[in-house]
């Protein structure tokens, strides 16, 4: 449904994204993962037709977005991170205006506005001005405007940013309900969000696509990198000296200590926590706890987006 080939964008001399290629099938939900500044928003802005790429192609059902922008923009709905809204308009007026602008026939306007306000839970505030709505409702209006013309592809940039926990659950449910009728691409730096909602993950790092696939595919690919938290009885310097010298340890992410124990967050070279355990015990230290320090997706994300061996200054700086 969506084919992206060699997408590159420069802002002046600054490279924002480079040679990004991927495909998403019809009705799927894909998630763009990456740290802030990784290029997620730039990709979505290009896919929405708001920006033009420096090079590369974007095809929707085989039609190129750059050569036929007007035809394809009608098939795309876009919610930027900050919902673009006219606060003086009512929800109904705003949605009618955008539906007309995006080519919805006059005879279908009423039905379409009612359908979308119902599916996004906006019926009770439909005649209120947008400026008087809470952040959660304004985000819903943002989603409603992105689907008011029934687009095949919906692009959502950080859709749960700034929402409270109840609103987050509601928003996830809303996004899942949209899938099937629409192909959805979500960008986020919040791991649980994409874990809960997406079929496919696309991991961006410094403007390049460093991993893609289902969570299971990526787990398999990045299985070698395992983040663990270990609590060891002993003096901080001695514990650091022992752990830092082990082959199985790729890096010490952080080290905290109190009177009873040192707690270290480690990235292992390979999936052999037992080697770490026996080395600690064999070195005469008390092993109090050894557990995964991140959930699986977080481990994948860290393995794909962070350097494997941090510098000495980084480790020093994280000591408390």
């Amino acid at each position: 449904m969506l084919e992206v080939q060699g997408l590159t964008k420069y802002y002046g001399l600054k490279r924002a994204i480079y040679d990004i290629s991927f495909e998403i099938g019809s009705g799927q939900i894909a998630g763009f993962l990456g740290l802030n500044g990784a290029g997620k928003t730039t990709v979505l802005k290009i896919l929405s037709g708001f920006l033009l790429p420096t090079s590369g192609t974007v095809k929707i059902d085989g039609t190129d977005l750059v050569s036929s922008p007007d035809a394809l923009r009608a098939c795309i709905g876009f919610l930027p991170e900050e919902p673009p809204l006219y606060p003086e308009m009512t929800v109904r007026g705003f949605l009618r205006y955008l539906a007309q602008l995006r080519g919805v026939a006059t005879r279908d306007l009423k039905r379409q506005v009612e359908r979308v306000t119902e599916s996004t839970g906006l019926t009770e505030v439909i005649d209120q001005s947008i400026g008087s709505l809470s952040l959660g409702y304004r985000r819903r209006v943002g989603i409603a405007q992105s689907i008011i013309h029934d687009p095949a592809l919906v692009l959502l940039d950080e859709p749960i940013s700034g929402l409270d926990p109840i609103q987050i659950v509601e928003m996830r449910s809303l996004i899942r309900d949209l899938a099937g009728d629409h192909t959805i691409l979500i960008s986020s730096h919040i791991l649980t969000e994409v874990e809960e909602t997406c079929d496919t993950l696309l991991v961006l790092k410094e403007g390049e696509l460093v991993a893609r696939g289902s969570e299971a595919d990526l787990r398999e690919r990045f299985a070698a990198a395992l983040s663990v938290r270990v609590a060891i009885q002993g003096a901080a310097e001695e514990v650091r000296s022992l752990v830092g010298g082990l082959d199985v340890v790729a890096s010490i992410e952080s080290l905290r200590h109190n009177d009873k124990e040192c707690v270290l967050d480690l990235t292992l070279q390979r999936d052999e926590p037992e080697a770490l355990a026996s080395a600690v015990v064999g070195g005469g230290f008390g092993l109090r706890r050894l557990e995964p320090s991140h959930n699986e997706l977080e481990g994948i994300f860290l393995a794909a987006t962070t350097p494997r061996t941090p510098t000495a200054e980084q480790s020093e700086g994280e000591q408390t």
């Binding site: 929405s48 037709g49 708001f50 007007d70 035809a71 394809l72 923009r73 009608a74 795309i76 876009f78 930027p80 900050e82 673009p84 809204l85 006219y86 955008l98 602008l101 995006r102 080519g103 405007q145």
Partner: peptide
């Protein structure tokens, strides 16, 4: 300034 230009720039209009 209000970033609502995206609504117009992504609509199927010239």
């Amino acid at each position: 300034r209000e970033k609502t230009i995206v609504l117009l720039a992504t609509a199927p209009i010239s």
